[in-house]
Write a protein that binds this DNA or RNA. Structure first.
Length: 587
RNA sequence: GGGGCCGUGGUGUAGUCCGGUUAACACGCCGGCCUGUCAAGCCGGAGAUCGCGGGUUCAAGUCCCGUCGGCCCCGCCA
């Protein structure tokens, strides 16, 4: 290439008129009028219209050969477009570049899909040709947003005295929690490293080491099944602080969110964020990550229907279950088919059925009316705040299941009934989580957050008598129905940690084997500490207004954890296996 | 481990329920015409045997079985 690029394709304006410039980029579109040829030249900064006039024979002949996605260099004069020819849709639309010279830096095959936004193309193809997909303006802006998010986070924590420390990617496997990705050791055949599910133990050890404010933007790995908001490798903003209580962590995070929203979205948000107890979240919204952009709270009618003739409700209540429901404004128009669909939906979450009551002008428009006397019908209707034309959807089951089922129904209805206002960001904290939950399969309590989470002091006395009632010093940050961060104050005393392990049925020997290094560290002066970790991809996804974290990850995996572009995972050479002492056993 | 939806020229879809002569449409691509377009326009053309394998049938894109792949969800994700 003879000359250097002087400007990007988004840079030129009226005031550059008359200048000689060199632009480089991709041919976005070609409009050949037989005489004059227009090329829109694209790079990540924008597009600029290039004009090729037949009078300039040499450059005109080159222009005729140009096709989509050719990489070219153009030297020319910036000119103000003729009267009435400006393109307001383009930032550079008031000018154009009259080409003097044009060099094809590299031709291109016709791409398998067009490099434009708003085209319907299967995600499969987008992932296979990710480099083409990433050329599309919307994907470029997603990755640029992600880039800005990294910068805001680093700046904020740096300003607040946090130290960024990298922790190992090759670490000890700790089978509590998610499935590990394992890495075989060549030097120690038969032994394995694990990729971190999170740098949890390292950051706690950094507290012991005296780095009282730590953060890291770090990859984590979990070998579990994927979802729209879950990838096997994902990025966390990992944070830990010493000499703090939960409020200190929460307000530090609120400050970060305020900064992020301001810098990325130009939105001012209020702090402190509302806090809901776990119990309140479950009872009112049926979720530990409630979407608070809309109301539609669950209504508990257990106390009313206890007196009804309806056996389904009575039996559930006799077994200490709950009867709760949701009001669907205007839902009385739902067809039988629609209600059947919703019934199928709630069954996926373990409900036995769904009771639907249509509210008519005078009274219930429902075959169930006969089971409830008139006063009861009126009480129930008013408990829901329901009016004629509404629909009540009611679940009767054990309390937790009732809540969870209705929570999922609430989210589905919100989407389908457009209850969710556009462009809102509703942050909240969910606090007072149970420390433990009982795992039926393993027949033991497991840590709801992780085994290093501190119980609340006032609940410690319950650890022996009623472990399920012990609340944790744990907190989740929820944004628009997504858990975007979760953390806790940690246990920093050996005795309490031992107690926790015994509740989890982790023997002293096992604790020693798995976490001995951490426990030993705690014996050398561990400060009280706590922290939090953000799902960076989820946060980026929400800020970008996308439905899948794949849209904010440059090279994501498919649902079955394949990389369609490079073909990972793949078989390896026999020699590599030999070096590692690994034999493949046919499945 | 399980449930649902999907796979037809380069791309997106129609056709599949009710099997039957040249698989349709739009965009893209190629060529021609055209000197001010910007989703340029007009005319013409090429291009798919219907994800893959097997089966049923005189006959399969269409029915059946299996398999691969994509997406959404349940379980799982301390």
């Amino acid at each position: 290439m003879k000359s250097k690029r002087t400007h990007t394709c988004g840079a030129l304006r009226k005031e550059h008129a008359g200048q000689s410039v060199v632009l480089m980029g991709w041919v976005d579109r070609r409009r050949d009028h037989g005489g004059v040829i227009f090329i829109d030249l694209r790079d990540r900064y924008g597009k600029t219209q290039i004009v090729f006039n037949p009078e300039n024979e040499a450059v005109y002949q080159t222009a005729k050969t140009l096709r989509g996605e050719f990489v070219i260099a153009v030297k020319g004069q910036v000119a103000i477009r003729p009267e009435g020819m400006a393109n307001e849709a383009l930032a550079t639309g008031e000018i154009e570049v009259i080409a003097d010279e044009c060099e094809v830096l590299n031709p291109a095959k016709t791409p398998p899909f067009e490099i434009i936004d708003n085209i319907e193309v299967s995600e499969e193809l987008r992932l296979k040709y990710r480099y083409l997909d990433l050329r599309r303006p919307s994907m470029q802006s997603n990755l640029l947003l992600r880039h800005r998010l990294y910068q805001v986070v680093r700046r904020y924590f740096d300003e607040n005295g946090f130290v960024e420390v990298e922790t190992p990617m090759l670490m000890k496997s700790t089978p509590e929690g998610a499935r590990d990705y394992l890495v075989p050791s060549r030097l120690h055949k038969g032994k394995f490293y694990a990729l971190p599910q999170s740098p949890q133990t390292y950051k706690q050890i950094l507290m012991v080491a005296g780095f009282d404010r730590y953060f890291q933007i770090v990859k984590c790995f979990r070998d579990e099944d994927l979802r729209a908001d879950r990838q096997p490798e994902f990025t966390q903003i990992d944070v830990e602080m010493s000499f703090v209580d939960a409020d200190d962590v929460l307000s530090m995070v609120e400050g970060l969110m305020q900064r992020v929203m301001k810098d990325i979205k130009s939105v001012d948000i209020d702090t402190p964020f509302p806090r809901l107890s776990y119990e309140e979240a479950m009872e009112k919204y049926g979720s530990d990550k409630p979407d608070l952009r809309f109301g539609a709270q669950l209504v508990d009618i257990s106390d009313f229907v206890r007196a009804s003739e309806f056996r389904v409700f009575r039996e559930v209540l006799e077994n200490h279950g709950a009867v709760k429901g949701l009001r669907v404004p205007g839902g009385a128009k739902y067809s039988r088919k629609r209600i059947d669909e919703l019934t199928e939906f709630v069954k996926e979450f373990g409900a036995k059925g769904l009771v639907a009551i249509k509210i008519g002008e005078a009274d219930w428009d429902s075959g169930l009316a006969k089971f409830f006397d008139e006063g009861l019908r009126r009480k129930i209707t008013s408990a829901f705040g329901a009016e004629a034309g509404d629909l009540l959807l009611i679940i009767a089951d054990e309390r937790e299941r009732t809540n969870v089922v209705l929570g999922n129904l609430r989210n589905r209805l919100a989407r389908e009934e457009n209850w969710i206002p556009e462009g809102q960001y509703h942050f909240s904290w969910v606090v007072d989580f149970p420390l433990l939950e009982y795992d039926e399969e393993e027949q033991r309590y497991v840590a709801r957050h992780h085994p290093f989470t501190s119980p609340m002091e006032e609940d410690v006395h319950l650890m022996d008598s009623a472990p399920e009632k012990v609340r944790a010093k744990a907190y989740d940050l929820v944004l628009n129905g997504y858990e975007i961060a979760g953390g806790s104050i940690r246990i920093h005393k050996r005795e309490l940690q031992n107690k926790m392990f015994s509740l989890l049925k982790i023997s002293p020997e096992e604790a020693e084997r798995k976490f001995g290094f951490l426990l030993e560290a705690f014996e050398y002066g561990a400060p009280p500490h706590g922290g939090i970790a953000f799902g960076f991809d989820r946060l980026a996804m929400i800020l970008a207004g996308r439905q899948s974290i794949r849209d904010v990850i440059a090279f994501p995996k498919t649902n079955s954890a394949l990389s369609l572009m490079d073909g990972a995972p793949s078989e390896v050479d026999e020699r590599q296996l030999q070096e590692l002492g690994i034999k493949i056993i046919d499945p």
